[in-house]
């Protein structure tokens, strides 16, 4: 019997060598990767070309000209300003609000769990559809929010159609959709914190505000950082909400990077400028995502270590 086990060597006709196996398993995913890397490099090339879909005969390499032009291009600076304002406002408010709600719901009670699940519904709504919902609610004719505004004396409040309130409106939609994201991550973070420091502080009668600043916040930092960076990266690239709400208008009030690039490509058919804009956005997100991934990995390892 025991000799038999040794001698029945190659049972299968096809055998994979140990070294090749992992590559073979990840090959399909890798090929998909490469399929995505090709258009990426094409985009790099486009950004270095004078390339308009409407004038294909005039296409030529102009190297850094698209980028150089940005320096004296007020539209570019507007895009940068609008994108950064949007990212700063949305993430800032969402962080404060998300942290506040997480603290409110920190205790594991049936009611709190129910509320936290309910609050996830906006996050599960497609951002484009969320914009549509808010569009219906801010319609000057019958929108419930326009009606509420008129109740507090703001007659003819035009929300996204008014240049002075357009940013406020899309930021509001972003907050509605994404605050639950920060809330749920911080809630998981708060609930995973070790209890001893808090019990010790309670025993010693340490003031709660002090506990919050000196114990809760420092211990929550990895979660805060991960959630914030994640949101900044997404927010600076926001497209769905703004495009669905106003298509970048009114005027150039909301022409954030991706919206501006989209309009450049499909309306002005200026492929070169569009690609150059996206490259700059990519450079920003690349730096941010590198910082993010470092934090995220540390958090991931820590959480896995505990499990």
């Amino acid at each position: 019997m025991s000799d038999a086990t040794m001698n029945q060597k190659p049972r299968r006709g096809f055998r994979v060598s140990r070294g090749a196996l992992p590559y073979l398993l990840s090959l399909p995913a890798l090929l998909t990767c490469i399929g995505i890397l090709v258009p990426f490099f094409t985009a790099v090339a486009y950004s270095l070309q004078r390339y308009r879909l409407s004038q294909p005969w005039a296409r030529k390499w102009n190297w850094g000209e698209n980028y150089l032009n940005f320096l004296s291009d007020p539209a570019f600076w507007n895009t940068l300003k609008v994108s950064l304002t949007y990212a700063f406002l949305t993430v800032g408010i969402e962080l404060l609000l998300g942290l506040g709600i997480a603290l409110l719901l920190q205790k594991r009670t049936r009611f709190n769990n129910f509320v936290s699940i309910m609050l996830l519904m906006p996050l599960m709504t497609a951002p484009a559809l969320a914009s549509l919902m808010w569009k219906l609610m801010t319609n000057p004719g019958f929108g419930i929010l326009s009606y509420f505004a008129s109740l507090i004396g703001l007659h003819d409040f035009r929300w996204a159609s008014d240049p002075s309130t357009a940013m406020l409106t899309v930021v509001l939609v972003d907050i509605w959709v994404y605050t639950p994201f920060i809330m749920i991550l911080l809630l998981a973070g708060l609930r995973s914190l070790p209890q001893q420091p808090f019990e010790a502080a309670a025993l010693d009668g340490v003031p709660r505000l002090f506990v919050f600043w000196r114990i809760t916040l420092p211990m929550l930092t990895p979660f805060l950082l991960t959630a914030t960076l994640f949101r900044v990266i997404e927010s600076i690239q926001q497209f769905d909400i703004i495009y669905a709400m106003t298509q970048g208008g009114p005027g150039d009030k909301l022409t954030v990077f991706q919206v501006e690039a989209y309009l450049n490509f499909f309306q002005s058919t200026n492929v070169g400028r569009s690609a150059a804009l996206l490259m700059i956005l990519w450079a920003i997100t690349y730096i941010l995502s590198n910082i993010f991934i470092k934090n995220w990995l540390r958090l991931r390892e820590r959480q896995r270590g505990e499990a």
């Binding site: 995913a29 990767c33 995505i36 990426f40 094409t42 486009y46 690239q237 996206l278 990519w282 993010f292």
Partner: peptide, 27 residues
Amino acid sequence: LKFRGSEDIAFTLLSFRFAPPLLVLLP
């Protein structure tokens, strides 16, 4: 099956999650 370059590939795949989608979509 940790293998040579596995982490690099895994992170490259992850970084797609963070790149501007239009960058790939337009080409």
